[in-house]
Write a protein that binds this DNA or RNA. Structure first.
Length: 853
RNA sequence: GCGGGUGUGGCGGAAUGGUAGACGCCGGGGACUUAAAAUCCCCUGAUCCUAUAGAUCGUGCGAGUUCGAGUCUCGCCACCCGCACCA
């Protein structure tokens, strides 16, 4: 190093407190990360799921955005024009909760949070294009959403119908599922009722087939997510037919297992099925049962996990084949929303039916067996839902499940008492929310004209600012003037819709708005065509179904009405794991309750942990997802202040594979900080006077360039990190040479997407000595010398009966005979063979020799 | 309950069916120092052992396929995520 000033700087510690803001403002000033729509480079749209502005960035965000950031910076180095934007999923319940609890306005609270979180994100040095920032709670965003909603309405994809909500009779308000705890309202503690309201729906079921078919080609998505969506859409083919009921009526049922029709021993209908409702009017007991079913939450999990209960009516249904009279029940586990709201109960081959039949002592018949000889085999403790051969079923005996299904459907159709039909588990998307802090649904209710869309030139329908949350219920509903308006059609007095849209609507098109933000329309189709689809989308696995399915639907719906020309918004998807931390707690002696402590309140050393305030031990619990309620959270700001952005970023990428959980630890971040300083010191070892080459180090350097590129493209950051540690160690150990200088500056380029502040600082200091200029963020990815990737020698494992006995080195590409001879000449191997007859020798070139003896 | 996933040293993890434990953390030993911090070097799966050598066991549990299984197949167990008004 000829420049002694720079050399001296590397002898001092790297100071993130000074370097981080310096380079952050350098990037901002140079507009380094602003995407240029007019660029002729190939484009790359890297997107992480935008955050809800809860107030503070948490470690999960840091992890999510660091991954996207590394990819975005890497893509830029590889010559792509990168779009990497950020916005705010800014509508939602927490703002209303804050309003109720702290008396602040949801808007003020949200906007303040956005400012605070934006500042936090900037301190981490993310390569974001802030010029495209958006917040869904601003009329400049949701006004366009209203316009799109009206477009979908006019295309016939929006409709209204009655649907059930959780109603809190004390707070007089609709509750979200998470606000219902053990069937009671979270604030009032009152028993929650199911109540029907007129609500808005989107016809996602129109696209069920297309959403399903679209999954196949989405090979950039994890198989598990595609499978989850497939199961969620839940296409099934089965038989719909009607039972003749003893009261002279018909009862349509749907079954996915018509092959088991001979095993039917009862029929069950949902509590809100017309038959049940009719009965409830005359029979007080039936009514009591139906009312009982209305209590408790509306979630599928509660209904299906709960006890199977039924009420036996006096009705019977005639079996279409045997003519037997089957009892008709009202049952709490039958869903009105699926199929016809009525099922034939086959206890032997459906677990829910099995539990129900056991409870009500109904016959459990075997109609499927593993083997025809097992036709009379008794059942164990559960139903047998698997494959097998049909038994005890007259004309179906001996058939496979598949064939029997076809035969029953064929016969039903031929005899005209039933039809083979396709049924979907997917239901239409209910988007009505009886809340203030959301996008107002842009419709007007007129006594004369009915439901009328707000004319587009009157959009946006803006939320009123003057609302209070002192009373329960929807502030829009009781606002003195807001909802009163006139009908756009006839001019008569009319009322605004007071429901707002589900926030999943906001997140179903924000990626389009990032491409361009015209004020007169939701997006510019040309810009959207240029940037979309998103090359890489990154977010939590918890969004595997709802958000991702809704966004896929919305994109299809916009294509359907001709506004865009593609159906899939996200070419590749990556679902990252959570950030976890161990729990610190004490059990309270008096009431046995657990009191939790934050990691900041605890001194952690070795196996023990003590509370800072009293020095007494606390219990160390399991490692679980960071959550406010368990207090096992670490504040990113505190970490940035102590270690700087680069150490935090490096930690997020190290060790744990990105799709798995990442356990936070102080020791871990300290280790990362040491590495950052190590790279800094190593940069001081650049010596422009050095001469001579080091082939091993040069090979290692080029192998690392290739491997790290591969790892980043696969988002295997932990593997890239391991490679970079190896190159660092190799460069440290090597004597000065031109190869070493090259190794160090290459290392700097390779780590620059991960620890960009240090990389810029060192790059800048090395500039006079090495002759480069500009920002490292603008520098290209180093070139690989392919010739240097190949090793001359390889280590061959020698096994006897599959067990390792020795290793030898051999020239790469040695032939089988050479390797076999080499293996047999090994003393250790001979000792192991011990004179036994060699029956076979397996040789895997450049790998191993296995002697079977 | 249904659907999806995960399981490898003290810890996080690596490993196209081919040398299990790369890399990092923790821990132990040493160097440097008046001392400490920082830094550097060495060791670090378990058991046995005649101990620089060698042997056996070992990837949640139980079977199986294979010359060879962390990896493939079947059956279990534990934990995590989602279940339509949390985002």
């Amino acid at each position: 190093m000829t420049d002694t000033v720079s050399k001296a700087r590397f002898d001092e510690k790297f100071e993130p407190g000074q370097a981080d803001p310096r380079w952050q403002s350098a990037w901002e000033k140079a507009r380094t990360f602003e995407a240029d729509s007019n660029s002729d480079k190939p484009k790359s749209f890297v997107l992480e799921m935008f955050p809800y502005p809860s107030g503070r960035i948490h470690m999960g965000h840091v992890r999510n955005y660091t991954m996207g950031d590394v990819l975005a910076r890497y893509k830029k180095m590889r010559g792509f024009e990168v779009l990497h934007p950020m916005g705010w999923d800014a509508f939602g319940m927490p703002a209303e909760n804050a309003a109720m609890e702290q008396g602040v306005h949801p808007g003020g609270w949200t906007r303040q949070n956005i400012e605070a979180m934006k500042a936090q994100l900037k301190r981490i040095g993310f390569a974001l294009d802030w010029s495209r920032e958006l917040a869904t709670c601003e009329p400049e965003y949701y006004g366009h959403e209203q316009s799109l909603f009206i477009d979908l309405y006019e295309a016939g994809l929006v409709y209204r119908r009655q649907a059930t909500v959780n109603w809190d009779p004390v707070d007089m308000t609709v509750l979200a599922n998470e606000q219902v705890i053990d069937g009671k309202g979270w604030r009032s503690g009152a028993e929650v009722e199911k109540r029907k309201l007129d609500q808005w729906f989107l016809k996602i079921t129109d696209f069920a087939d297309d959403l399903l078919d679209g999954l196949g080609p989405l090979d950039g998505w994890p198989d598990k997510v595609r499978l989850m969506q497939e199961n969620w859409i839940g296409k099934s083919t089965g038989l719909e037919f009607s039972f003749d009921v003893s009261n002279g009526g018909k009862l349509p049922v749907y079954s996915t297992r018509p092959d088991t029709i001979y095993g039917a021993s009862f029929v069950a209908v949902a509590a809100d099925h017309p038959i049940a409702q009719e009965l409830a009017e005359t029979d007080p007991k039936a009514r009591a049962f139906c009312d009982d079913c209305k209590r408790g939450g509306t979630t599928a999990a509660e209904i299906e996990a709960g006890e199977k209960k039924g009420f036996q009516t006096q009705l019977t249904a005639r079996h279409p084949f045997t003519g037997e009279a089957l009892p008709v029940f009202i049952a709490n586990f039958v869903l009105m929303d699926y199929g016809t709201g009525a099922v034939m109960g086959v206890p032997g081959h459906d677990q829910r039916d099995f539990e129900f039949a056991t409870k009500y002592d109904l016959p459990i018949l075997r109609v499927v067996a593993g083997d025809p000889a097992d036709a009379d085999k008794p059942f164990g403790n559960e139903a047998e839902a698997g494959d097998g051969v049909i038994v005890n079923s007259d004309m179906l005996n001996g058939m496979s499940v598949e064939d029997a299904k076809a035969k029953v459907i064929g016969r039903a159709e031929a005899e005209a008492w039933g039809n083979g039909t396709t049924v979907w588990r997917l239901r239409d998307w209910g988007v009505s929310r009886q809340r203030y802090w959301g996008t107002p649904i842009p419709f007007i209710h007129c006594d004369e004209c009915g439901v009328v869309p707000v004319p587009k030139d009157q959009l946006p329908v803006v939320l009123p600012e003057d609302v209070d949350f002192k009373q329960p219920g929807n502030p829009l509903l009781r606002h003195s003037t807001w909802k009163h308006t006139s009908c756009p059609k006839c001019g008569a007095d009319a009322q605004r819709e007071t429901d707002t849209l589900d926030t999943f609507v906001d997140s179903s098109w924000y990626f389009l708005r990032f491409a361009s933000q015209p004020s007169d329309r939701p997006f510019d189709p040309e810009e959207v065509a240029k940037w979309l689809p998103v090359e890489q989308y990154i977010g939590g696995i918890e969004h595997a179904i709802l958000h991702l399915l809704y966004a896929r639907f919305w994109t299809r719906a916009l294509k359907h009405i001709g506004q865009i020309d593609f159906a899939e918004p996200f070419a590749s998807l990556f679902t990252q794991g959570m950030v976890t931390h161990e729990l610190y707690s004490r059990r309270d002696d008096d009431d046995g309750r657990q009191t939790y402590f934050t990691p900041a309140e605890v001194n952690r050393s070795g196996e023990a942990a003590t509370l800072k305030t009293d020095g007494q031990p606390v219990d160390i619990g399991r490692v679980v997802k960071m959550s406010k309620s368990k207090k096992n959270v670490v504040d990113p700001d505190a970490i940035l202040a102590e270690f700087g952005a680069d150490s935090a970023r490096w930690f997020m990428l190290s060790d744990s594979p990105p799709e798995r959980d990442l356990p936070w630890s102080v020791a871990g971040i300290e280790g990362c900080h040491r590495f950052v300083q190590r790279v800094w010191r190593l940069c001081g070892a650049v010596d422009v006077d050095a001469s001579g080459e080091n082939k091993d180090l040069a090979r290692k350097t080029h192998q690392t360039i290739a491997a790290v590129a591969q790892d980043i493209e696969a988002l295997s950051f932990n593997k890239a990190v391991a490679r970079l540690y190896e190159l660092t160690a190799a460069a440290e150990k090597a004597a000065p040479s031109t190869s070493r200088n090259h190794a160090i500056v290459t290392l700097l380029q390779l780590v620059s997407p991960m620890i960009p502040h240090l990389a810029e600082e060192a790059w800048d200091l090395l500039a006079p000595a090495l002759g480069h200029s500009g920002l490292i963020a603008d520098a290209p990815w180093p070139a690989v010398d392919e010739a240097l990737l190949v090793e001359d020698e390889v280590t061959i494992a020698i096994q006897h009966m599959g067990k390792l006995r020795d290793t030898v080195t051999a020239p790469k590409g040695a032939d089988k005979e050479t390797l076999e001879a080499l293996a047999l000449s090994s003393e250790k191997v001979q000792r192991s063979i011990d004179g036994k007859e060699i029956r076979k020798v397996i040789v895997v070139p450049d790998r191993l020799v296995n002697i079977v003896a």
